[in-house]
Computed example of a mutant assay.
Amino acid sequence: MSSEAIKLAKRFYLDEWTDAMLYKKLAEWERNEKIRKEFERLAELEAWHAEFWKSFLEKRNEKPPKPGISRLTLWGVKLLRKVLGPGSVASLLEMGENSAIEKYFRFLTEYSTELSAEERETLRRVILDEIEHEKFFREEEKAFHVENIRDLVLGMNDGLVELLGAVTGLSAVYPNNPQIVGVSGLVVGVAGALSMAIGTFVSVRSQRQVKESIRSRMEVLFEVSPEKTVEELKEKLTEGGLPEEIAEEIAEKLKTNPDAVKRLLLPETEENEVRASLYTGLSYLLGVVFPVTPYFLASNSLTALVFSVLLAGSALAIVATLISLLSGISVRKKVAEMVATGLGAAFLSYLFGRLMEAVFHVSAL
Rank of each mutant, 00 (worst) to 15 (best):
K7Q: 14
A9G: 02
L26F: 02
A27W: 12
R31T: 14
E40N: 08
R41P: 04
L42V: 09
W48Q: 13
S55T: 11
K59G: 00
E62P: 04
E62M: 14
P65I: 01
G68E: 09
I69S: 10
S70L: 01
W75Q: 02
G85P: 08
S88E: 11
L93H: 01
E94R: 10
E97R: 04
N98D: 05
A100V: 00
E110L: 13
E121K: 06
L123S: 06
E130A: 08
E130D: 10
E134K: 06
G155H: 03
D158K: 06
E162D: 14
A172Q: 05
V173M: 14
Y174W: 14
Q179G: 04
Q179M: 07
V187P: 00
V187K: 01
V190L: 08
L194F: 10
G199F: 11
R205W: 13
R217Y: 14
L221Y: 13
E231C: 10
L233W: 04
L242Y: 11
P258C: 01
P267Y: 10
T269W: 11
T269P: 09
G281E: 00
Y284E: 02
F290Q: 00
N300W: 04
L310R: 08
L316F: 12
V319I: 10
V319M: 13
L322V: 15
S330A: 12
R332W: 14
A346L: 05
G353M: 12
R354M: 13
V362M: 08
